[in-house]
Amino acid sequence: MRKKIGVLFRKTRKTAHTFERLQTCKHCHTYHVLWETHCGECGREYQPIRSIAAAVTHRYAQSRFLLLALFVSLAVLFAKTLPQLLAACGIGLLLLVLFFLIQKKYGSYERDGQFLAYITQEQSAIRQALVRHLEDVGADVKAGRIKEAYEKTREIGHFIQSDTIKIRKIMFLNHFILRKDMELELDTLVTSTYDKDFVEYLREVVKVQPSLVKKSVLEYVRRYKPYILLQENGGQLIGQVAGAALRMKPYVEQYQDLIIEFLDYIPRDRLLRLAKLARTHGQEVGWELLYAATKKQVDTHYTFDPDFAGIL
């Protein structure tokens, strides 16, 4: 068995949108998704791409305004009579004010539209940056810097949701001793096919952070149940996952087949939670089987346990 190492992960930035993780060096015209704040090539500070795109849009709006002002100025200059001069000044001023008002009201839509166009235009440069980061990951692995390799892959994984990236992350994570205080991920690692390393990781993570078990993980366990059962202590693992599903009533309702089947493997504290849930919702439609199975399990194994007394 591989010797696991204790690590402390670098904190990942919390952002509302993925594009906020993307930074650019205006000078080198390169993109960056990792934690460095300054360009490795020229040393200049990275800029968020949203602000770069907004500056481009702002300059475009300014150029339109200047063009409009130029037309108005020329109209004033070419005026030959007083009525023409007054009309040029009055109408010109009105047009400039209207431009300002329109810009103020609809400018934000232009910023968003231009930002999307900017991203679309820059997609190959962004992809090149991600490939460059993946090459760095390869170098880190060769040098034995698994923690750095994972941290970089985690950042790249925000942009590329492929099984290759997920499997890499899982392989790196399986090198570490997992702890409660770690910033771990689980549902972002669920692969589209069965992966033994993922199940190994799931076994560890469910022990330290059962709250990471979400719908996608439960679906995965349900789908690949026969494969998981072939592994050592597979039933126990599914029981632990089923126990973690008891956090939320919708999960209990949706995955009660899994819970009933692996009731024997559900830890005592989780069974206590299930018993309390069954007491509260036992009379509801769809809870009959779960209620009966829970009652049977409690009667069989916990008849003399004071914590379970009188619940069902």
């Binding site: 339109r64 409009l68 108005v72 023409q84 009309a87 047009l95 209207l98």
Partner: peptide, 13 residues
């Protein structure tokens, strides 16, 4: 010319 330029400005807007 003034009116043409104003029309162009209006069109631009």
């Amino acid at each position: 010319v003034t009116y043409n330029l104003l029309a162009a400005a209006f069109f631009l807007l």
